[in-house]
Amino acid sequence: MSGVTCHIGGLALLGPGLPGWAASQAVLLGEQPWQDAPIVVPPPAMLAPTERRRTSLVVRLALAASTEAAEASGLAPDTLETVFASSNGDGAVVGAILETLATPGGEVSPTQFHNSVHNAAAGYWGIGAHSTQPSISIGCHLDSFPLGLLHAAARQVPVLFCAYDAPLPNPLAELQPTEFPFAMACVVTPEPTAATRARLTLRYCVGEAAPAASPWQVLERGNPAARALPLLAALAAGRPAQLTLPLLDGARLEIEVTP
């Protein structure tokens, strides 16, 4: 077992019935039941129209959450390193390319191809935020959120962390079900800032976690990025909490939340 500590603030989320951090407080606090509602993903105002036109739903989703988080953090976007975590990446683009490749005479388009890279959202963020800061994009199947958060915290510099996923098109969707789009973002810093909501101690542990009851189970199963919801709910409540997120292949991430 080994742990890292960070401070978390600048919170953002975007999902069905969860239209942003401030607008989701009542649901996160359990004052109102979660109700399904279509998700509205705004076009990225940070990009020039030519770039904006090339962005897909999943890139817009990641940029919307990232923008909200950076604003809420009070830190300049171009000073933040970034960690983008996604299981599916741009599944719509990858799926379209796969169909094209399976079609005799089908031709992949240049824009499709450069949008298919897993770091597309990070690339558009850099363009929009005019940032030359280091950025990584990770793909860890169902563990992209917990492993991305662990890695963002380990860097020990201010990091904008964004976990996002959107449904894959058929026939891939049957094999990797993602029920709805969901993104969360936050800023983690080694030292507390004015925007800090809590100190997090993250411990990577070997051994499977006992299944814990969660009011967010349906959403957590519907999108790998929505595995952030128990942490987001604890942060909204401003209460100390001890969370355990099971990881694939016999490990777990324990998160201690200290407001």
């Binding site: 990446g89 897993h118 770091n119 950025s135 990770i138 860890c140 890695h151 070997v206 292949d249 016999g250």
Partner: peptide, 11 residues
């Protein structure tokens, strides 16, 4: 191995 795993995909 049983330490943390990570796949990085930055093209």
């Amino acid at each position: 191995l049983s330490g943390p795993a990570l796949t990085i995909s930055t093209a």
